[in-house]
Design a protein around this nucleic acid. Sequence first.
RNA 1: GCCGCGGUGGUGAAAUUGGCAUACACGCAUGCCUUAGGAGCAUGUCUCGCAAGAGGUGUGGGUUCGACUCCCACCCGCGGCACCA
Length: 794
Amino acid sequence: MSITRYNPQKIEGKWQKTWTNLYKAKDFSKKPKFYILVEFPYPSGEGLHVGHCRSFSAFDAVARAKRMQGFNVLYPMGWDAFGLPAENYAIKTGIHPSITVKENIANFKRQMKGLGLSFDWDREINTTDPKYYKWTQWIFLQLFKKGLAYKKKMPINWCPSCKIGLANEEVVDGKCERCGAPAEQREKEQWMMAITKYADRLIDDLSRVDYLEKIKTQQINWIGKSIGTEVDFKLENSDRKIVVFTTRVDTVFGVTAIVISPENFFAGEIVAKDKKIAVQEYVKNAKVKTEFERTKIEKEKTGVFTGSYCINPLNNEKVPVWIGDYVVASYGGGAVMMVPAHDQRDYEFAKKYGLEIKEVIEGGLNKEKAYTECGKLINSSHFSGLSSEEAIKKITQWLKENNAGRERIQYKLRDWVFSRQHYWGEPIPIIHCEKCGMVADENLPVKLPFVKNYQPSGTGESPLSAMSSWVNVKCPSCKSKAKRETDTMPNWAGSSWYFLRYADTKNDKALASKEKLKYWLPVDWYNGGMEHTTLHLLYSRFWHKFLYDIKAVADPEPYSKRTSHGIVLAQDGRKMSKSWGNVVNPDIIVKELGADTLRIYEMFMGPFDQAIAWDGQGVKGARRFLDRFWNLALSSNAVKSSLEIKHAFNKLAKKVTEDLEATKFNTAIASFMEFINLVSGKQNETGKDVIKQLTVLLAPFAPHIAEEIWHKLGNKRSVHLQAWPKYHSVQEEKLDLIIQINSKVRDRIEIQAGMADEKIKEVALSQEKIKEILKDKEIKKIIIVKGRLINIVV
RNA sequence: GCCGCGGUGGUGAAAUUGGCAUACACGCAUGCCUUAGGAGCAUGUCUCGCAAGAGGUGUGGGUUCGACUCCCACCCGCGGCACCA
């Protein structure tokens, strides 16, 4: 029989047109809901990356399978469209970012549709749409009113050549990403978000969610909670004090100096007259250094003596106060107690400047390095003899009683710098009034005005500051002269709550209706890149907890389950990049081999969570598999399938279902291939019953070819509306039993299931091959593993 | 330095309550078909050995009837953090 050849170009577009109404998520339904979310992309000018295709296709398979399993599935898509590339492009070409973004979105959407992705396009969102960012601004105002959004002088990265403030991600190796000039530090008022107020809850609530373990660990480490003690060191001849934070208060009798950071406000105030010049010089040098230079690993520790002393409250000893740039200003108050005997950094510092090294923990002071272990206290007055653990408790208690210290928890997490001095972002809806100060502008949305010039202002303000007609307003409360805030929000703002908007995209009364939020949230499964673990994922959890506190949402956590995908590298193992010329364009693969081939290949190429290199040959293997499936499905004409084929299909259905849940897309596809290989040799045992079921099972992975085959087999309704194939645990009647001698496989036999152990022994020992080997050997032991093997130890 | 993940054929990899190591695919080789093959099909493809057989999952040790899988020590690679007191 001659059959038509598989030609994806002919069938894919045809079916895509018919699917437009299949994937609508219904608000409220008798079916259980299932909300699957993949991170929405920045619509760049380069178009869809094959990496996007990988995770979108894989979760498209999950979404389609879930629908067939009877869930009311929400699988939405949108655009995270604020950001620098569009602004930079506007600077270069004069074309307004909104136009570029519109074109790019159209292109992305065309590509996604061409892949047959089953997004519900009725719920498309765009962070740059005023109807959307109205609510981003609304959330900002709620945070502002609760004091969680506040202004503060902060050092920022500054490019002296572009005359513009740089976000951390725009500073690469200490240099401006655009022009390559070394970035400097500058002080500027910045909007901040008090994420540190939520630090404990962000850690504790991880126990409520199902995230990959590595994601949880990375967030916990990033937040960096550490429990310790604050100790007050009074300045000599002054009533001021320096407060230090330490996790090793048991070593407090070994303090031989206090070191404060150059930024510390004390630095200018406590310096003795004869040391002023030296200190000023040192601090000036330290401040010029960028964060990058200061944190170089090999850097030698430097410092300068202030000429002042303070008093150790435990033994009333006088200790010198130094300034050193190895002390981090923004952590623990920017001051440390120096215990060179038991801290390696302090040891190096003390060695360099000839400071005293005083041993207070027994353990043998080494000539080359500090002894940093815990142990028994010595030279510590009446605390001597205690263990470190006991001493930490007792000394902290003593400090409390004498009003010279207290327990204290510190975090590495810093508050979130929320301002950007750029044009292409959400305006911060705040008005600065001469009389009232900062006033919330409730008249939302505060629309981003069209400007003529996107060039940075050169003063460090955003290009908006030059728009006097926009900037100069009247105070909404007292009608006095006032100015708008000209800073805009960071990229992270719009993405910190977008998953809520999908529940109710057209609502203009609230960010989404309570009922719909209650129905759809939390997200059941959220997949994205590992690179977003400590920024986007943490920021959005923070905002969501805040919204929970003001009762805007019903759950304390936004995502029930979080997995991550590995990036797709170029064939040469490097990142895909225009400048390397190694970019794979999905359009070309779709055109030459078909969307289904691309989908299958990207799921098959390797473990989903691992970075993996593209392989141009490998894609062809995926196409071969689909060709074989096509030919088999259309040529098989047996009436009924044999028991063996039915069993094999049952096993396949089980494997595929389980692998989808576990993001093991690669082994799911491998099992399909295995099944096709098996069936190819047994076509007259393979009936239409199994072929139909196989087509349904493959439909989430390769939706177009499955739809075509399904119709060619005489069905009318879409394959994507079929019920997911059922499988059952098979009680096989006969089992393959492996016979080992000393754990080496020597023979295999077929036995009845449920055979008694004694009988199994008897049968195994009576095999000719086994008899031959055992001829002159003594049996020591026989181990039987039910249904698997028998091991004869000799 | 700290935290996390990993190391299995020529390549991407599979196999976990400890039980057949290398499934599936790529590549390669040989053959068939073909005017042709950059299409398709068939067979082979961890190492040594003609074979029977033996060895083999980064290295060394351990537990076990049995270890890719568990334990200890080490080496290497990747990712994140990095003077956080």
